[in-house]
Design a protein around this nucleic acid. Sequence first.
DNA 1: ATTTAAACCGACCGCTGGGTCGGTCATTAT
DNA 2: ATAATGACCGACCCAGCGGTCGGTTTAAAT
Lengths: 205, 205
Amino acid sequence: MEKHLKSKVTINRLCYKGLDVFAQKGYHNTNLNDILRELCLSKGAFYHHFKSKEDFFVYIVQNLVAQKIYALLVEPLSAQEDPLSAIMESLDKALEPRKSNELIYGFMLGDFLTELDGKQEQISAYLKDILQMWEVNMIGMLKKGKLDGHLARHIDCEGVAAYIISSYLGMRTMMMNHNPKQAKYQYLQQLRHYFNSLRPSAIRA
Amino acid sequence: MEKHLKSKVTINRLCYKGLDVFAQKGYHNTNLNDILRELCLSKGAFYHHFKSKEDFFVYIVQNLVAQKIYALLVEPLSAQEDPLSAIMESLDKALEPRKSNELIYGFMLGDFLTELDGKQEQISAYLKDILQMWEVNMIGMLKKGKLDGHLARHIDCEGVAAYIISSYLGMRTMMMNHNPKQAKYQYLQQLRHYFNSLRPSAIRA
DNA sequence: ATTTAAACCGACCGCTGGGTCGGTCATTAT
DNA sequence: ATAATGACCGACCCAGCGGTCGGTTTAAAT
């Protein structure tokens, strides 16, 4: 195989496995040896491509996590006229049970932020950036939706966006105690109630 | 000082400082040496009172965290007729900015659960118990409130409780990006909207 | 006064895990 | 063909941290 191609392959294998393990065990609990053993790679291989564990993690966050968040939770918001429907649909899709051990990317942000807050300011900054990208986009869509009459005029779009994201991030913790399928159903149900309270009274269900 | 009294004092100092540091840095990032240095105590002193770091943490959770959760978030729910008002009030109080570095106990549960899930099943179990105590109590109050006509009859009390707790736990992550005072205000505002959608239509504001 | 044992000290142990470095093999450039 | 460079190996280093243990002080028991 060509050299630079082989390099790309190795980096990719490292990143996807890394994302997998980081998501499962968190940043601090993940050790490189485990990842390398599973991939049959050596310390040397790793440090040839990344200059540190932190560097590795940031690379994953910026390349894999950010993209997934954007594709699943940000981009779909622009697809519909009514922002509340768009948000509902994107969350519904994002919570779809994945085949194999594919990940629910939105949650990882919250988990990592919780773990790395205080310590590891560098990494937190990147994570916060991604969350904020989601948030400002949602706020924008809500404001546009307000102008189009999809939301009541007195609604505080910033507050709504923060509240939606909060509930979404927090749900992971709750899901650990419950049946995921039921938890998803219940969550979307309550979100629907809440959204309904944001509609102009004329079109409220 | 009497011996058993001195022992109690030492244990107390260890626990409160431990809670403080654990809450700030998480379980894995907290090392005993730091705690002991700040308290001018030795390894020997620690291991005389606790048999391990894990044992220490569990002791703190069961003795300090559980009590605070109960006092702040569980017990107040029974004080009022209307469960939604009671919940709103308890969360308002729980989010009150604390003097010095007193802690917002509710959040810690979520943080620790996030960090320790998977690994450290023992500890997670205790944390989950506390969360569940909160949840079942809230569900009970909601059901009672439904009978009394404070909630619409079609409301799914289990779903509502899970949703409220989710949003509360998730808010911490969001608060890291915002002004806490404003975040609290916005959060309670949105919660009010949501609660309003749960009322029987006759008494809806 | 003497013994006992609890409270505490702090040097030490050993494992874990991030990071280093000199070397090997394969690909590519000359 | 040969040199040069990139991909990779794996033994090794070392700091951090949970946990141990023999010893010392001090309060309680006899």
